[in-house]
Design a protein around this nucleic acid. Sequence first.
DNA 1: AAGACAGCCAACCGCCCATCT
DNA 2: CAGATGGGCGGTTGGCTGTCT
Length: 308
Amino acid sequence: MGRPPCCDKIVVKKGPWTPEEDIVLVSHIQEHGPGNWRMVPTNTGLLRCSKSCRLRWTNYLRPGIKRGNFTDDEEKMIIHLQALLGNRWAAIASYLPQRTDNDIKNYWNTYLKKKFRKLQGHDGGHGHSQDELISPNFHSSTSKGQWERRLQTDIHMAKQALCEALSLDKSSNSNMSHLKPSNIGYYPAQSTTTYASSTDNIARLLQNWMKRAPKSSQTSPENNNSQNSFNNNLVGTGSSHSDEGFDSLFSFNSFNSDASQSENSKPNLENQVVPLSLLEKWLFDDVGAPGQGDLMDMSLGETDDGLF
DNA sequence: AAGACAGCCAACCGCCCATCT
DNA sequence: CAGATGGGCGGTTGGCTGTCT
């Protein structure tokens, strides 16, 4: 027999998350750390499936997420990495620690793709679809050995992509400073800004919600009271951060170790601190090192020419 | 002013691999 | 070892919002 079922298939709420649900989820994660998503609906009483909770956390509530307005550097990085890695958004997102894969995916699908089409149009096009043109054909090989080689190639290519992206605009180094190895981890040491950013996330969320609240039928009558209380307690914190409560609410230092315990061994976003930092350190340390060229020369020559 | 349309994005769906019993 | 679930990922959808006609 396997594990017990993930979530009771009785009533599972769908659709947009309410601030109440967000708070419940964040509080729970603050206590227990991210992971063990199966137990989250049970422990919190949220009528959401575990997947939904995880998604909400990783794409929206997680500390350190930057939203909206992609910078030129980020855009370059995405374009480069997409060309090198294809539509592997999670892999791409791991090089833009402040962005979620969903965000990057959306940005690509809604904006960059069109931008590319335009560019292609100017170039006259070659009868290839954009994805064909810029994505390596990773899907043709699926065996484990090939996958391993592919991964190795990916790492080399990503390394080169980083170097190039960083050297594209040296003057904007300050903007790219978040890519320094020390800041790559998902729970960076500069905790206050991280928490503040997360507080802002929720404050912004609440403000949006307040704007929509009057016409949204999703808010049950009893929500009105809680809505007001949330308004009093949280929304006002956006600028002044009278957030002693929030500081504790978003103090994730305490459970980093818990998280690493409860997480499985996959290099997911939550426990990438060590492996990703090491990888990044290695990537950066290796920049400019002699004899790194073979793979990269081979791969980049093909992809970049078509691109730029 | 109102309807049509397009863009954006949060959330869901379905698949796959890892893990557990 | 087999069967079942958990978790992660990429693709897609649907609702909201802004713009155009």
